[in-house]
Design a protein around this nucleic acid. Structure first.
Lengths: 147, 147
DNA sequence: GTTATAAATTGTAATGATTACAAAAATGAA
DNA sequence: TTCATTTTTGTAATCATTACAATTTATAAC
């Protein structure tokens, strides 16, 4: 029997459970998000799927992602103002973006809290944390140069 | 004798100290940021200053803001992908944006920490926290409607 | 003060991600 | 099959931001 670690094996069933009709495009996009785990832009998804779905339009990718966000299947990650990235793991976690190579990673937040008197009277619906810097790879390269 | 609470009274002197030549536009933009405290977009600043500086161009506002960010005088706040907002207070704090009225406020972080095994090997240069929800005003209005 | 040089400012055009919208295709129920 | 609904597509619009070249202003040397 197969096992899994927090990733829905049955993407069609998962989408149905989220009240999203599992069209080919939607299944492919969700499959991409889940298995690539690379926090892609809409354009990255489009380019990756255009091969297997020759008639795919970019608008469809945008539509699909919008419906995912609306249904809580995916979330938008806004770090740069020039691009929105997408993530399927919607539990509370942060994101790290490398300012050199542009890669985005999840950040499991072992300890994380925001407390502030300024929140008095407000109703919080979302909170986001993102960190910028050099990823392990780019940091290594940088250090070599400085020897 | 005058007193102040963390806001530079002498904007010209402050800019000089930050190695930025205090041209009229730069002084006006910084003055606006400091005294309005409204986390404006470039366009909001442009509209506000176009009256007193009739020849002002939007490009100049963008140039000015870019030089401020570069010098560490201001920071960019990226919550929506459709706009960049600016803040002059560069100590560590978060931001709150009301999803109803769009206002942005500072969030003094009484307790705030990010710890994560995922940060191993990385070099962090910036970290950002933003919270979305209903501001006090919009929250009150919402509650009244639901009585 | 004039002149030369650099810096600041401006206006216009380009960029590029996202959205609007209407037509075409696919789906599903009667 | 037929009709209505949903999905998908392609093109055009939007809009913040940037690129860039021209103009203006400031600065310093003479």
């Amino acid at each position: 029997m197969k096992t899994t670690v927090g990733v829905p094996l049955d993407i069609v069933g998962y989408l149905k459970g989220m009240k999203i009709k599992p069209s080919l495009i939607r299944v492919k996009v969700l499959d991409y998000l889940i298995h690539k785990r690379n926090h892609p832009t809409a354009d990255m998804i489009f380019k990756a799927l255009a091969g297997e779905i020759p008639t795919l339009s970019k608008t469809s990718v945008y539509n699909t992602l919008k419906s995912f966000v609306l249904a809580g299947v995916a979330q938008e990650i806004k770090i740069e103002n020039t691009e929105v990235r997408y993530d399927v793991f919607t539990n509370v976690h942060g994101h790290f973006k490398c300012t050199v190579c542009g890669s985005v990673e999840d950040l499991k937040l072992d300890a994380y809290n925001i407390t502030s008197d300024d929140l008095e009277g407000k109703k919080i619906t979302e909170h986001h944390v993102y960190v910028l810097g050099f990823c392990s790879n780019c940091n290594k390269k940088k250090n070599k140069k400085n020897i």
